[in-house]
Simulated assay, not measured.
Amino acid sequence: MKTTISDEEFYAGLQRLPKPKYPFPNSIHHDFQLQREEYYDWIDREYIFHSKEAREKHKQHNLTDIAARGCPFLKNLAELRPLAIYAADGAMMDDYFDRCSYDEMKDIATHIMTLLTDDDPDEPANNDIFHRFWILRQSAIACEMPERLYKKFLKSLHEVLIGYADERVYYRSNTIPPLPVYLLIREATSGAKPFCQYVAMQKDYRQLPDSILEHLHIQRLHTICALMIGIHNDIISLPKELHREEDTMNLVKVLQQEHKTSIKEAYMMALEVHDNYLKEFLVLQEHLPSFGQWQEMTRNYVQDLGIMVAGVYAWHTNDTSRYVNGGYVEGEFNSKQ
């Protein structure tokens, strides 16, 4: 991509195309500003492996707002903190390791999981991305996250990290994946599955038994949430990804390749795919299985999954710094492979 490009070139008419819409309420956690202040502080103290320019851009992105908007009903800052750490550090890690290899990303994922599972209980000596994930575990313990919910959260987080590794194969080869492969990887790399698990930390949902939280009906709703978030991210980030080689994991690019069509036609196809998932979500929401005494709580939990999706999208639409012309952070990791 050219170092300097006009806004007209960057957006190429895409701004006027229709955008996703959700029928769910939009809210934000009452402690979002306090969480932002923590976020600015840890960037200054612990992200010194990033360039000054990258750190200042990350501050502008307010990545912890993704958690504050996705789970606005958490009781306090302590409960918000683990999700905010995951959201912000996951995004910044994805930026930093943008051009690493599959093997390097697998090694990074393995190291992170040893810290999150306490297989490696020692606090990392350096202020780096690994130290941040060690802090995530300490924050989950501090807010008394139930062990069974933490394990579900970790399982889905591990899938995100594996997805990050899998997509590197396509990035490094500058190859657009076929649609079935894209959908599998994007379900993971949207980063939404851990959010779906964390929704159960709100209100009284931690009371919901595993037989409900792991029910196929609920799991399908989680998958749909992940794909809607992945696709709406693709739609918003498309101008950036059209101007960077190796940004191949985007549904619009996938559909353009599969259907040999224009970018704008592929964009409309991608929006239709998104909207079909939204329709499926609403049908499944309306036709929940019989969950007995848990019926009303499950219905509310599913509604809050929708609010989570709308909240993440609201972060995208309120953010004016991450996916705009020149606003994104380039990968700074020095790959050895």
Rank of each mutant, 00 (worst) to 15 (best):
A88Q: 05
F97R: 11
I212N: 01
Q219S: 02
R132H: 03
N126Y: 05
R244Y: 14
H30C: 12
I129G: 03
T110N: 12
E53W: 00
K2F: 13
K21N: 09
D120P: 05
N325V: 05
E8M: 08
L213A: 02
Q207S: 14
Q197D: 15
N62R: 03
I108D: 03
T117E: 06
K279Q: 11
P23H: 02
D120E: 07
F49H: 02
L161G: 04
H259A: 14
D103I: 12
L305Q: 01
K21R: 06
I108P: 10
T110Y: 11
F333D: 01
S27A: 15
V283M: 12
K264V: 08
A67R: 03
P209K: 00
G191R: 06
A188R: 12
R220W: 03
A109K: 02
P289S: 05
C143K: 00
S190H: 09
D122S: 08
S101P: 10
A68L: 09
A91D: 12
L183C: 09
N318L: 06
L179P: 04
E280V: 11
L278E: 01
T110W: 03
I112F: 02
A68W: 00
L179N: 07
D44Y: 04
Q256E: 10
L216D: 02
E265A: 14
P82K: 05
L221D: 03
F10K: 06
F49I: 00
Q337D: 14
T175N: 09
V169Q: 11
E332M: 07
L136D: 05
L34C: 10
D103P: 09
A310Y: 05
I108A: 02
L227T: 06
R132W: 00
D304F: 06
G326R: 02
L271R: 03
D120N: 04
R69C: 14
K52A: 14
Y40S: 07
S262P: 06
V169H: 08
W134F: 03
P146F: 03
A310S: 12
E246R: 13
R99E: 15
L208E: 08
K193M: 13
G230F: 03
H158A: 04
L242T: 13
Y323M: 05
R81P: 01
Y22C: 04
A87C: 12
L63D: 10
Q35C: 10
M145P: 11
C143Y: 06
I108V: 02
Y22M: 05
N62V: 10
P289A: 00
T223P: 05
Q337S: 10
I108K: 02
L154V: 09
T317G: 08
R81W: 02
R148V: 13
